[in-house]
Amino acid sequence: MRVKDGVLKYGFVGPALIFLIAFNIFPLFYNIYLSFTDAELSGGATQLIGGRNYGVIFDDTRYSTALRTTGLFVVLAVATELILGFALALALQKPFWGKPVITTILLVPMMLSPAVMGLYWNFILNGHYGVVNQALSVFGLFQPQWLTDPDLKLFSILMIDIWMWTPFMMLIALAGLNAIPNHLYEAAAIDRASRWTIFRRITLPLCSPLLFLAVLLRTTDALKQFDLVMAVTGPNDRATQTLSALLYQVMFRGYKIGLGSSYSIVILLIVIALASIFIRYIASIQAKQGRESA
């Protein structure tokens, strides 16, 4: 039996296309539609109410707090992960005894499920029976209430996120470091560059496009921070409520589908805006170095 090329073509592309429309394109546009309605999960007639939901968002103090919490979380988490990850990558750059084992161990946190890790850390950091405070008590040290002290909660979640995602930064940074040809270091040694000069003028600039990519991936991911918050404090804790947690609270605890949809659109716009700035920046660096743009 012969199948015409045209038919075959659609046969191959079709399933993926249908999947994309059903699970990406349609939900996106339906979400945009919902954000302009007063839809509620409890039912009742749905009415178009124009931009009123967006007005509610910008008047809601929960929103401004969540925005600030998320911003703080993203900046601190990504910056710390970048610095620690890059430092680890530099330490792992040269071969030494036991390097493969150490590298594998360092990568473990990244491979575990965030929700499960959140629950584990919940135990580890528990103020009464947690391992951390037990250890501190042995030395007679002050035992902070990691999970209940409003000033510490966000910091605790931040620590867990850093613990989980530093290996990711390290992995990308290692790839970046390994991509720098050894003869450039040799040339720099001949040119009498100091170690600091080599780091500042060879290693860092040649590694930076990949580092920016890692920062981009981590930033967009951290902006959506939800699972750790959910597992450690729950979604409705004022001290740790990120945008995603607020969205969850509004939509699935308050049943306000319309309002929740508009929250999700706002988050999406923030992510897209940040991502496009990063991508342009990476492309401009690469263009400067005469590389093909990504």
């Binding site: 040809p181 450039l184 040339a187 003028r201 060879i202 600039p205 040649l206 400067k288 170095q289």
Partner: peptide, 10 residues
């Protein structure tokens, strides 16, 4: 160097 070893970003 045989393969020049110029700094690509400079």
């Amino acid at each position: 160097f045989q393969f020049y070893a110029l700094y690509p970003h400079m």
